[in-house]
């Protein structure tokens, strides 16, 4: 880890959405960091608020949402920055890769035009934009980029579309790329290739990445640090290897147990008992307590705060020490 501070630091980050009567905190006081040149993974079941956090970082939350807490890019507080400043950061400092590349690309525009749009708007002459686009598509692993840049998104395969989306995100040379389930919509065989590509581009460019996924195996391959989310709160966070090697929160442990081991004899994986909590109607105390094997009276009443269990590792469990490996 470098000595410099993190690229992104979120503290007590909350996002409120209008509920039945009051504004409900769908993201509730979340802390996390994304280190310079590192990848932080946000993991959790659907509805845990992963995408909402990514939207808050790039500043594209739904209009009805309100956001509070602190969110810093290097030394700059983003939540109080003006809309114009946030817009200038978008694409240039913070870019985003979306889950479904087919719907995330404009069906009526050629790939090259979409990838190069940010450069064109920055005032680069056309020839230079085209050269840059060819380079970006090439870097994203699209063969024959001079010809392919003139194709429309529907003429690409799923994997090629996601590569084009990656090229589009890289066009503004961002410091941080948000990848929202970048492989979920793809075939399994293509997933691995796209993940390797993302990891290699991240390393080669020394940029940071915030990777959103529900897939632990994706995380174990790509992310350096892990943030485990449940119902809009952080359960635990720390370096990926240590978090997955020795979970300090019953939810992380349960997530690990639910991943089927492919090569071993087909012992059915332990599914998590019960349904994921809804952040719009979170259970009292620790949101995980209705599904937690360690739950006691205290868990139903008192919201656990994140504690530093060991250097760089935080757990929001009252009984973190009791979580067995």
């Amino acid at each position: 880890m470098t000595a410099a501070g993190p690229l992104i630091e979120a503290r007590d980050l909350s996002v409120h959405l209008p509920g039945a009567e009051t504004m409900t905190p769908v993201i509730d006081k979340v802390d996390f960091t994304v280190g310079e040149g590192r990848t932080t993974g946000l993991i959790g079941e659907s509805g845990s608020g992963k995408t909402m956090i990514a939207s808050a970082v790039i500043g594209l939350l739904p209009e009805a949402a309100t956001v509070s807490g602190e969110l810093r890019l290097r030394d700059e507080e983003l939540l109080t920055a003006g809309e114009k400043r946030r817009r200038n950061l978008r694409g240039h400092e913070i870019a985003m890769i979306f889950q479904d590349p087919l719907s995330a690309l404009n069906p009526a525009q050629r790939i090259g035009r979409q990838v190069g749009e940010i450069l064109r708007r920055d005032g680069l002459p056309r020839g230079e934009v085209d050269r840059a686009v060819v380079g970006l598509l090439d870097q994203a692993g699209i063969p024959d980029p001079e010809r392919r840049m003139r194709a429309y998104p529907h003429q690409f395969s799923g994997g090629m579309r996601q590569r084009a989306m990656i090229a589009l995100a890289l066009a503004g040379s961002p410091s941080l790329v948000l990848a929202d389930e970048p492989t979920t919509a793809l075939d399994v065989t293509v997933q691995a290739r796209i993940l390797r590509l993302l990891a290699s581009i991240q390393a080669a460019r020394g940029m940071s990445m915030l990777l959103v996924s529900h897939d632990l195996r994706v995380m174990s391959h790509v992310s350096h640090d892990l943030v485990v989310l449940y119902a809009g709160r952080v359960c635990e966070r720390g370096p990926t290897k240590r978090v997955l090697g020795r979970p300090r929160h019953p939810y992380t442990k349960a997530l690990l147990a639910s991943v089927p081991a492919v090569r071993e004899a087909s012992v059915p994986a332990d599914p998590l008992p019960g349904a994921p909590a809804n952040p719009m109607a979170r259970p009292s105390g620790c949101a995980f307590h209705p599904r937690c094997p360690l739950a006691r009276e205290r868990c139903k009443v008192e919201v656990p705060l994140a504690r530093e269990i060991e250097p760089g590792r935080f757990s929001a469990c009252h009984f973190a020490e009791e979580v067995t490996p």
Binding site: I58, L60, R87, N88, L89, R90, G91, H92, A95, M96, F98, D100, S103, A104, L105, N106, P107, Q114, E117, I118, R121, M165, L168, A169, A171, G172
Partner: peptide, 14 residues
């Protein structure tokens, strides 16, 4: 409402 509109916003367009 289409997702490609989000992509366009993510490029910093107004």
């Amino acid at each position: 409402q289409e997702p490609y509109v989000q992509t366009a916003y993510s490029k910093g367009l107004s």
